[in-house]
């Protein structure tokens, strides 16, 4: 699915982009959650989706993946409709979206990342378990493989979720607030893994809420507040002007100055 495959392109969306959307509109009841949003994420890069609370960041990911219904809009993943390329996508939901009291272990959660390839009935072999252990090792959780997931700390749970995504061996990683409520060691571990994914040529898109780390972690940013405010490389799209536009008066002038400095 590269540029040499123009037949896969839909409605003029860039077929090389790991995720391209046009006119994406989502509503919750009568309340608009996203309005006519366009975005084209670059391949092999780390991209952040940034915006104030309630701006529609998580909604964007969910709507792009067809997890929630959209009112209108086109979405392509590597130039294809999402349903045709689900095996190339790994989605990491918000940690708070699941019940961690569920009777299962860390390695069992990682094995769920293989369900897409295993289908309904193919047996889980020792090879699959080794693979899951390797994924846990990559996020520094190898020693916790047989721990019930409710006994893990928030940061450890987030790492297990990332290990499950690694097991999917996807080309596009979509993460919803991967750094929310995690400790510094976990944040470091997660960012290292995401950077290694980028080095392998995979694309990473994360909903991110900590403005101060955006320039340090990411190459590309989509700034939204119900609509698209700005999109592009950090240096162009992550500026005091665009941030003021996205956040309104919610950012102090000193904050903006500091962010502008770190971006340049």
């Amino acid at each position: 699915m590269t540029a040499s495959d123009p037949s896969g392109a839909e409605g003029g969306l860039d077929p090389r982009s790991p995720l391209a959307v046009r006119g994406l509109t989502v509503t919750y009841g009568e309340k608009p959650a996203l309005f006519s949003l366009d975005a084209t994420f670059p391949a092999g890069r780390m991209s952040a989706i940034v915006g104030p609370n309630g701006a529609g960041k998580s909604t964007f990911l969910k709507a792009a993946l067809d997890l929630i219904p959209r009112v209108s809009g086109e979405v392509t993943v590597f130039g294809r409709p999402v349903d045709q390329v689900r095996d190339r996508i790994a989605y990491v939901p918000q940690r708070a979206s699941v019940d961690w009291d569920f009777p299962t272990t860390a390695i069992d959660v990682v094995l769920m990342g293989l369900y897409g390839r295993l289908g309904l009935w193919r047996r889980i072999t020792g090879g699959h378990r080794d693979q899951a252990r390797t994924c846990l090792d990559r996020v520094g959780m190898a020693d916790f493989a047989d721990r019930q997931i409710g006994q893990l700390s928030g940061g450890q749970q987030q790492r297990v979720f990332l290990a499950r995504a690694l097991a999917q061996e996807a080309d596009l990683y979509l993460l919803d607030e991967p750094f929310a409520g995690v400790d510094a060691a976990t944040e470091r571990a997660i960012i290292d893994v995401l950077k290694s994914l980028k080095d392998e040529g995979r694309s990473v898109i994360a909903v991110h809420h900590d403005l101060s780390t955006v320039p340090q972690y990411f190459d590309h940013v989509l700034l939204i507040n119900l609509r698209r405010v700005a999109e592009g490389p950090i240096a162009e799209a992550f500026t005091p002007e665009t941030l003021t536009k996205a956040y309104g008066g919610r950012l102090a002038a000193t904050q903006l100055d500091r962010l502008a400095l770190s971006a340049s």
Binding site: K62, L65, D66, L67, D83, R86, I89, Y91, P93, S97, V98, D99, F102, T104, V109, M112, Y115, G116, L118, L120, W121, R164, L174
Partner: peptide, 20 residues
């Protein structure tokens, strides 16, 4: 027969949907 979908949709509905 449907152990895996039952387990996965009970634990993590969003992830199950992302697998289609």
């Amino acid at each position: 027969l449907f152990w895996r979908p039952l387990k996965l949709t009970s634990f993590d509905e969003g992830f199950a949907r992302s697998l289609g």
